[in-house]
Design a protein around this nucleic acid. Structure first.
Lengths: 196, 196
DNA sequence: AAATGGTTTAACTAAACGGTTAATTTTAAT
DNA sequence: ATTAAAATTAACCGTTTAGTTAAACCATTT
């Protein structure tokens, strides 16, 4: 059984994910949840508050996914492979998430601080933990992680464009491309990480 | 001397770039241009038309930049280096462009077709021309280009987040990071392209 | 100097928006 | 069964929004 509050959050999640804060309408969220608009304000006082709840949920989930694998103590190459596989699977299951997060942190950069402390993540944690794991390599940890994220996220965020240019808007063909992508990224990074 | 029409387009460009279609307000564009709001409708009938003009300008400029280097007949490794350097410089001079394009093509994927034909670019052109240039390598052209774009664009699109997590919101430090990025991407791709 | 026609403005309109209110229904405790 | 609290709704409110209108401006032409 799902409570009304959950139904609202789920509906808000769907609408906000697709349309973003600026494009979303309270009425549409209410319709999606199958309730009256006033009920949104009953449970979440304002559009801002409702959005914050949705963003927090999505952001926390996202950053948790990123950190879980990376904070494990597997060997770096193996860790990288694990990350690519699980991360791309995760995005494939929630394809709107990357573009949503990217859009909203650019709309309101201040939201990051708020979410970081709310979700209990400490920026230092990332730097130090990733750092100690990777320090034996001559790679720059930050560039390495940013590269990994960019390689995984970009094909989802820019999907409509790439799908048009390279796949003639064939959606199934693009799904195949996204599936192949895991192996491509892994082989690319492994070669880069080779010591010769 | 700049005409009112140009002033409007320039103002609209600034506002749309920062806030996107949904977040932009005609009044703000009018203020930015130092004119009356009705004048916007005099030159560009509607918000949609004005946005289309702005998007077309930005998109055409963007895709032209991408294609110019890639369509040259330089050797692939050299071409890749040229591309990374010039592309990152271009984005650094227009940091809002990537996020803007990504956001808007997701909001309205249909806009891509419209822009493609308006700007005279033919999708086939990319596939075939890139293809013939790269076909001697065992690399998948599409994955290769998507990787290159992701590596270059992502640090700009996700700047607020990365700047917070890795640079404690030190903007100058992040500019250095972006500058370093050119060399990092090039060395990464060169190693990947090596035949052993 | 009167008329013309493109340009610009202030004032206005209608619709959409986020949010409120007051009343009604449902739920749960006594 | 009665009552209080929680949940839900319809109607409404004030504001904001894109877009319109009619008149004023201003340089050229007649």
């Amino acid at each position: 059984m799902t409570t009304t509050e959950q139904k609202i959050l789920e509906a808000a999640r769907q609408v906000f994910l697709k349309k973003g804060m600026d494009g979303a309408r309270m009425q549409e969220i209410a319709n999606e949840a199958g309730i009256n608009k006033a009920l949104l304000h009953y449970y979440y006082r304002s559009k801002d508050k409702l959005f914050e709840a949705v963003f927090n949920e999505i952001f926390t989930q996202f950053i948790t996914k990123i950190s879980l694998v990376l904070l494990s103590d597997a060997p770096v190459k193996e860790k990288m492979s694990l990350f690519v596989d699980s991360f791309i699977d995760k995005i494939a299951a929630n394809p709107f998430v990357p573009q949503f997060i990217i859009g909203e942190i650019n709309r309101d950069p201040a939201i990051i601080k708020k979410m970081m402390q709310k979700s209990g993540f400490n920026p230092d944690m990332f730097v130090s933990l990733f750092g100690t794991q990777f320090k034996n390599l001559h790679f720059d940890v930050r560039h390495f992680i940013v590269s990994l994220l960019g390689l995984c996220i970009f094909p989802f965020a820019a999907r409509p464009l790439i799908e048009n240019v390279y796949f003639n808007n064939n959606s199934e063909a693009y799904d195949v491309f996204l599936f192949e992508r895991k192996e491509y990224i892994k082989s690319m990074m492994l070669k880069f990480m080779e010591e010769e």
